[in-house]
Design a binder for these strands. Structure first.
Lengths: 147, 147
DNA sequence: TTTAGAATTAAAATGATTTCAAATTAAGAA
DNA sequence: TTCTTAATTTGAAATCATTTTAATTCTAAA
């Protein structure tokens, strides 16, 4: 948080209250919010804020590498994530939730380690795992027990 | 190709000329076309075909597991891929092209092999590799030699 | 051949995101 | 502090991929 503020100042990027509020919100909401999520959350405190500001700030933060836009979309919407370090994402096909996967095991793949494949220079890898999350798993088990 | 036709018939799905043409096109264009790509390609041969038909057929083929919709989007558009077998995708950040990664190495990750992680049941993994493709790499080298 | 259900069509609707021009704000200079 | 200019925000309109709709046209089975 602090380092972003400092960093942005060094880069000569203006720190408006709106931008501060958006950064603050993202810091405290690591559950991959959409632009709309951010907008709705800040609506009360900043009634005059425009959704266009949310989009432009998210774009700014993305361009400067503070946040990542996931390739995965929540019901057609882009969602965002603080890029603490390289991590992957798990998607629950039942409840639509996105869970961070901190496991390093994907990063140990030969391709990733070598940083290249068939002449392609590989910089980054984003893995999306699809399945059923533990919460939904438990629900399913309970249901089947009831029968 | 043949097996899809047979399969669809068995499933009681009507094989209209439009659907046949779309399947045929996808078979011959493995470069991850968008709905618009499909539509434009068939426009000449089927001038009356609607883009809505393209979308509904892609949806049908996806629902039946013949094609895969990538999470990655080409300039904001969904793109599709025959799912021969589980494979991953490389995205060139310079030329926007998407290249199939047949390498099995990602699938050998402990998470994927175990099929679970932290209580989540993992069914499938889609990896997106980002970087610079061999074509663009060569161009860059040539340029830097010219200097 | 008839007919009911399914698929196609063109147009309108939707909804996330982007663009725009006008109004406001930030920040450096005086 | 006040002035000034450039950057930012705003709200509304525009964009654009995709979906929906209702009417028309096909398909396939009887």
């Amino acid at each position: 948080m602090k380092y972003i503020i400092k960093d942005l100042k060094i880069k000569g990027i203006t720190l408006t209250p709106q931008r501060m509020a958006i950064i603050e919100f993202l810091k405290n909401n690591l559950n991959h919010p959409t632009a709309e999520d951010v907008y709705k959350a800040l609506e009360e405190k900043y009634p005059s804020m425009s959704i266009a500001t949310v989009y432009s700030t998210l774009e700014l933060l993305k361009a400067n590498g503070y946040i990542q836009e996931l390739s995965i979309r929540k019901r057609g919407k882009a969602c965002f994530d603080f890029t603490s370090k390289n991590h992957h994402h798990f998607l629950c096909l039942k409840c639509d939730s996105i869970i961070d996967i901190e496991s390093e095991c994907i990063n140990t793949c030969p391709i990733v380690k070598a940083g290249q494949l068939e002449g392609c220079k590989v910089g980054e890898i984003q893995a999306y795992l699809y399945g059923v999350c533990s919460g939904c798993n438990k629900k399913t088990i309970k249901k089947s027990n009831k029968k």
